[in-house]
Structure formats: C-alpha cells, structure tokens
Design a protein around this nucleic acid. Structure first.
Length: 405
DNA sequence: CAACCTTTGAAGAGA
DNA sequence: TCTCTTCAAAGGTTG
C-alpha cells in the first residue's frame, strides 16, 4: 500500500500542526485533563513516530511524492480492473433480471459487508469494530447521510444527472459508476463502516436499508453502492434504497426550490481525507470520554490520537480516503477542488496579511533558525523546536522538550 | 448570524 | 519543485 510507506502520507510533513500542541496554553490545560492515555500511547508508539519523522527528508519527500503518483497509477489500474470485472458483473446481473439487484456495488459496502477474503467476515454488523459516530449524537440517522449536501437541500434525494451535466453536459455512464464501486480483493474489507459517506449506513439498520442491501448481496461479491446515481435513481430521482449520495444535492429539494425560485447551483464538497474520516468516527467517542463539546478542543485531542495511531490503524483511514477520492472522482469527473474555492469568507486571511510581526509558519522558522527538521525534535512528544515566537518557553534545542525534560 | 477555532490531508495556485 | 492557501467536519465561541 503506497501510502503506508508514507507513514500517513503528508502526515509526516505536517510538522506545523504538531507544533500547535505545545502552544495551546489554556486549552492545553483543559485538554491535558482528558488526554489521559494520550501520552502513554504516544510513548509506546514513539518508535513509529520517529520512524516517520525520519522519512521527512527532502529525498524521502520526493520518494513519497513518487509513491503518491504510483498510488494514483495503481488506483487507475485497479479502477480499470474493477470496471472490467464489474462490467461483467453487471451484465450478469442484467441477465438475472435486475440492475444492481444482487449488489453490483462492490465499492463502499465493502466497509460493512463481509469481506470474502477475510476469514472472520460474517457480514454481521457486530463484526464492525467501529461504532457509528453520528448515532451517538442523537440525530436522525438519515440526517447524517448528507454531509456533502447544501443546507437548503439537505433533506432530499440527490439530483446527480443535473449536477454532472452542468459543466460538461456529459452524463455519467453507468459503466463508469458501477465499475468504480468494485473493490480489489482484500482491499479494505476490515475497514469499518462508520467513516465517510458510507459511515452512515450502519445507522440505517433500524430503517431496514442495510438489511435490504445485505440480504440481497452474495457473500462473494460484497458489493453495493451507498450512492445513488443516474442509473440507480428511480422514477422519483431517488435510489430504491432511499440512500442519497451525501455529496450531491438532493432532487426533492431542488424541486421544492424550483417552486419558489431558481434552484441553487449544487455544491459538491471535497471528499474527506483520512483524518477527517477518523475525526468523524471518533468525535463522539472523544466527546463522551472527555465531556467536551467544543470542536476545536476535540479536534486537538483527535489530532494527538491520530498521531498515536499505529501505521496499520492509520492505513485503514488512508485506504478509505483513497476509496472516497476514487468514488468522488467517478461521480464527479469534472469536479475540482477549485470549484469550492472562495465559497467561504476568510477573515483570518485578511488578518494574516495585515500582520507584520508574524514570523511565518513554523516550517519557515525552522529554516530561518537552521533547525533540522528531522532531528530537532523532542522524541517523546514529537514537538519540534523552532523559534521563540512559536515556542516562547524554549530557548535552546534540547533533545527533549520542556514538557519531557 | 457569519466567521472563527482546531485538527490533518488533499489539491490547486503561484513562484 | 517547492511553498502556501483553501477546504473538508464539527459545534461552541466570538464579533
């Protein structure tokens, strides 16, 4: 797995963010009460951490980029394979008399369906290790199905064809989508379903959606789609399962809006990266454990926990994120992250531009002070030592930071 | 009420 | 090629 070699991909290059841990101040104190085993975990895994830090050299960075390119190629190859295999599957299903009837969506369901290549895969919900985050929030399961939809459209089925044709006028071909959903054998069958778009599916069990899926799925295919698309939409524009793609604007909402005024242009959001998927999954757990509600503080804890994860644990999320991006690419081939640029107004950006005392990013500081990005770290906590601006309490470059000295 | 805060990672823009 | 910026989630806080 290419990203495994990265030890978390760009995570290794995220030194700047780690620095924030040491400058948290009041928030740090608050978090320390709840960090409990965080440091222990970090200590236990410091070897892993250090190993990953070593990989931060420019050379390895280049290698990493190469690996990422490799991965993209790998993904494309895999995708083609899946397209072929699933196309065959689809033909078979059509011969059987029903499109997707028996689970022609090998993709995301893999997260919750039995992996035929795993000995313990039973297809039972209990086989999933991870709990459903959204459920613990006490929200309706369906509401959490739409993280990608705009507010005005958050409660209705998607209208994918419209979405897709806006730019290019090209409607997505069913083969493309079906092929996308396929998974390589032994892919991420162990990945739990509570992450990302598909993370909502377990929460649907009470609504019968999941049973509907799994009951029709042959154990060998382990496939169905969590997303409706042009092919899967019924006459009402809704997938028979009733499960909309979270990244698209529901059709029903658009119809309602049309009655009042012109429909808003649907906004396709970015696919979630590995850490976002991890956060989404673990947020409720942290909230319950730490009795915190402020997302900023929770995210700090989650950031630490993320670093405390083993590579294998992180690999699950990187792999899932990769699948998410693949699926997103398939669903929205013309979409670009640039499409959403400027949709959020940023006061902070203006402040930063006005700030003349800002020494720049910690990375710049390290370069300015001649600190070695690989060695000038505190081993136990990975806090990098940089300039006095970013770390007022550190005047030298110790082997161990002020917290561990 | 919109933006901020806070995290990591992906992607785009620009030098 | 490298660096910087923006956005993705989330919900309390702030202006």
């Amino acid at each position: 797995m290419p990203q495994l070699g990265n030890g978390g991909g760009d995570d290794l290059g995220a030194n700047d963010e780690m620095i924030a841990f040491k400058d948290e101040g009041e928030q740090e104190e608050k978090i320390q009460e709840n960090a409990f085993t965080e440091r222990d975990l970090a200590d236990l895994k410091s070897s892993l951490v250090n190993e990953s830090e070593i990989n931060q050299s420019p050379i390895t960075a280049a290698v990493r980029r190469g690996q990422q390119s490799e991965e993209r190629g790998y993904a494309s190859d895999k995708q083609r394979e899946h397209l072929d295999s699933v196309s065959k599957q689809q033909q078979q299903h059509q011969q059987d008399g029903g499109m997707y009837k028996t689970g022609a969506y090998p993709g995301y369901p893999f997260l919750m369906l039995p992996d035929p290549y795993l000995p313990n895969s039973s297809g039972s919900p209990s086989s999933n290790k991870v709990s459903v985050v959204q459920q613990s929030h006490g929200m309706h399961p369906l509401t959490s199905l739409l993280p990608y939809s705009n507010d005005p459209f958050s409660h209705s089925p998607p209208h994918l064809p419209t979405d897709m044709s806006q730019k290019t006028g090209v409607h997505r071909q069913p083969q493309d989508l079906s092929g996308y959903y396929s998974l390589p054998p032994g892919g991420v069958g162990q990945i739990t379903p509570s992450m990302g778009w598909q993370s909502q599916y377990p929460a649907l069990s009470s609504c019968g959606f999941r049973q509907t899926f799994s009951s029709n799925l042959p154990s060998s295919s382990s496939s169905y789609s969590r997303f409706p698309h042009s092919l899967m939409l019924g006459p009402s524009g809704m997938h028979p399962t009733g499960i909309p793609h979270p990244a698209i604007v529901p059709l029903q909402a658009q119809v309602e809006v049309k009655r009042e005024k012109e429909p808003k242009k649907p906004v396709i959001k970015k696919p979630l990266n590995a850490f976002m998927l991890y956060m989404k999954e673990m947020r409720a757990k942290v909230i319950a454990e730490c009795t915190l509600k402020e997302s900023a503080a929770i995210n700090q804890i989650l950031g630490r926990r993320w670093h405390a994860l083993t590579r294998e644990e992180q690999a699950k999320y990187y792999e899932l994120a990769r699948k998410e991006r693949q699926l997103h690419m398939q669903l929205y081939p013309t979409w670009s992250a640039r499409d959403n640029y400027g949709k959020k107004k940023r006061r902070k950006r203006e402040k930063q531009q006005d700030s003349s005392t800002d020494p720049g990013s910690p990375k710049k500081c390290r370069a300015r002070f001649g600190l070695n990005q690989q060695t000038d770290w505190c081993g136990p906590c990975r806090w990098v030592h940089h300039c006095l601006y970013h770390s007022p309490t550190i005047t030298t470059i110790p082997a161990v930071c002020h917290l561990h000295s």
